[in-house]
């Protein structure tokens, strides 16, 4: 953080803040983070702000300050569950969920170090299930997630309880037109 602050003051001295990162984000998502007035409304209602290294308003401040690396390697972008509690509150109508989505995709694309790897693995398990069947298959997601994270025994009893309450189907329900699903998941250059 000290390092960041010194870069920051250096940048300010050199008058080098040109909101490069903010502009990049606006180009990718249409969101203008410079609109944020730092009222902290978002962070006061965010249910997971305490687990994050920077609560949402501070993350936005870091973007305004062009501290790209700090933002992209923060745990905030992974812990955000996209619940919209913040943007419902925001007087400037900033779509914080889309902002987090955009930051996450930049972090993935640039192969950044991910401080909450289990969360990314969970999303990948869900995506692979949708890609395979067109729908989510909860049991498969649980097993796939466990094999990715090697947390074999976490929630073991819960899994059994859910099975006994018939909350987990053994076989997936599938989309018939699988070709359309595969096309959705194909990278754009493959189409």
């Amino acid at each position: 953080m000290e390092e960041q602050i010194s870069t920051l003051s250096l940048n300010i001295k050199k008058k080098e803040i040109r909101f490069k990162f903010a502009k990049e984000i606006e180009r990718l998502s249409g969101i203008d983070v410079m609109r944020c007035i730092q009222c902290q409304g978002c962070s006061s209602v965010c249910p997971f702000a305490e687990s994050m290294d920077y609560p949402p308003n501070r993350l936005i401040r870091l973007i305004q300050y062009d501290l790209r690396d700090t933002v992209l390697s923060s745990s905030t972008i992974w812990l955000c569950v996209g619940c919209h509690t913040c943007s419902n509150q925001c007087p400037q109508a900033i779509d914080i969920v889309s902002l987090m989505d955009t930051l996450r995709s930049i972090a993935i694309e640039e192969k950044r170090n991910i401080p909450e790897p289990t969360i990314l693995e969970f999303h990948r398990s869900v995506m692979s299930s949708i890609e395979n069947h067109g729908r989510t298959h909860k049991l498969e997601i649980m097993m796939d997630y466990k094999s990715r994270t090697r947390k074999w025994f976490e929630d073991f009893n819960l899994g059994l309880k859910m099975l006994s309450r018939r909350k987990l189907d053994l076989t997936p329900s599938r989309v018939k037109n699988n070709r359309e699903i595969k096309e959705i998941f194909a990278r754009s250059w493959e189409l």
């Binding site: 249910p47 997971f48 687990s51 812990l79 569950v81 996209g82 619940c83 909450e116 289990t118 969360i119 693995e121 969970f122 999303h123 869900v126 997601i141 649980m142 997630y145 929630d155």
Partner: peptide, 8 residues
Amino acid sequence: GTFLSAAK
């Protein structure tokens, strides 16, 4: 908590 129920 949505997916954090599984991931955290």
